[in-house]
Design a protein around this nucleic acid. Structure first.
Length: 360
DNA sequence: TAATCGTGGCG
DNA sequence: TCGCCAAGATT
């Protein structure tokens, strides 16, 4: 039997970290909207919104969302498109679809009470290891690891760990460390304190080590390598793609397209969009699209060009406009006509809002 | 494991 | 200007 290489932390260091961190947090915690009470539903919503998203961006979305859906059951009862509309512009839209589905699940099968055990809550859509631990610890004060990017950065420096934080195995190692550090009496505050420290002091670049409550026990600071950590493999640059969007208008309405239920911008509305293959002509492809859908179109011109960068795709967009003389039976069920007001009321992602600015 | 999935802010 | 990245989950 091979002895497993487990990272253990000296008991005295554990005590110092717990005490210093909680003390610092009590003096420096930000007054954020989701910290006004301990409603598991609100904490859940905030944690989903905060995934890969900055606090300053989330705040207004969170406030509007809770105003619109004050309780878990309010959200469970709401039509999906209304819920997606409340998320418009936040990005990563599968988050809101998963949240809505999970909330309906809790409403229907758990008496509208957010599960308070790791196994049950982890089965809910959109709740992974981090979010499960965050909700359990913050809402229910249960001892659970909530290891996000902040925590991995803090631990990488605190213990001078050179593991690649992009790897899942590293997150598990960090969870093991977290469980050794979390005080029995304050798991929620401790987890939030770790993240708060990562956000305010132990920042990705130019960490404010001089103001850090853990400076005396930080290995990276002692070695002067805090700027070298954490280690993380570089992401691939987004793939460049030539796209054509169509603004096809008839009688004060435009042709819009509901995007597929899976993939990029799933469930959002958009303008008809064509991925332009290498060396293809925008006008020719637009013509093909119109012919295929029985659209008799004239006066096709370039309305504008812009670029939009997603996580893995870099769109170079050409927007064409045209007047629809006659529309026969439209082939695709995803296509429909909308007025300017209807377009305002439906969820369109930002990349399409950019294009729509050219017209409305 | 690595790719997918948005957006905006910042050094 | 542009690469990096921010309270990740899913496949």
């Amino acid at each position: 039997m091979v002895k497993k290489d487990v990272f253990t932390i000296d008991g005295e260091v554990v005590q110092i970290i717990g005490r210093e961190l909680l003390d610092w947090y009590n003096r420096n915690r930000r007054d954020l909207p989701w910290r006004k009470d301990q409603d598991p539903y609100k904490i859940w919503v905030s944690e989903i919104m905060l995934q890969q998203t900055r606090v300053d961006t989330v705040i207004p979305y969170f406030q509007r969302f809770i105003e619109q859906f004050p309780t878990l059951d309010d959200l469970a009862k709401a039509p999906e498109e209304q819920v997606i509309k409340a998320w418009e512009g936040l990005g990563y839209y599968s988050r809101v679809k998963n949240l809505h589905a999970a909330v309906k699940e809790v409403s229907a099968h758990y008496g509208s009470r957010v599960p308070d055990d790791l196994e049950t809550i982890s089965k809910l859509k959109g709740i992974g290891p981090y979010t499960a631990g965050a909700v359990l610890s913050i809402a229910y004060n249960k001892k659970a690891a909530a290891v996000d990017g902040n925590v991995m950065r803090v631990f990488s420096r605190l213990f001078a760990l050179t593991d690649d934080i992009a790897l899942a195995s590293t997150r598990k190692k960090m969870e093991h460390i977290a469980l050794q550090l979390i005080p029995e009496d304050a798991p929620g505050d401790f987890n939030q304190a770790l993240m708060e420290l990562g956000a305010l002091i132990c920042t990705p670049s130019s960490p404010q080590c001089l103001f850090c409550p853990l400076q005396s026990v930080c290995n990276a600071y002692a070695e002067g390598i805090e700027e070298e950590l954490p280690r993380k493999k570089k992401a691939k640059p987004p793939k460049r793609m030539d796209m054509v969007m169509l603004w096809l208008a008839q009688d004060q309405r435009a042709l819009v397209e509901k995007r597929p239920d899976e993939g990029l911008l799933a469930g959002m509305w958009g303008l008809p969009t064509i991925h332009l293959a290498e060396a293809k002509d925008p006008f020719g492809e637009a013509r093909r699209f119109c012919d295929k859908n029985g659209l008799d179109v004239t006066n096709v011109t370039i309305a504008g060009k812009f670029e939009h960068i997603f996580s893995h795709q870099h769109w170079k967009v050409t927007v064409l406009r045209g007047d629809v003389k006659r529309a026969n039976d439209i082939a695709s069920p995803a296509l429909t006509w909308m007025s300017a007001q209807q377009i305002k009321d439906k969820p369109f992602s930002n990349v399409y809002r950019k294009a729509l600015q050219l017209f409305i």
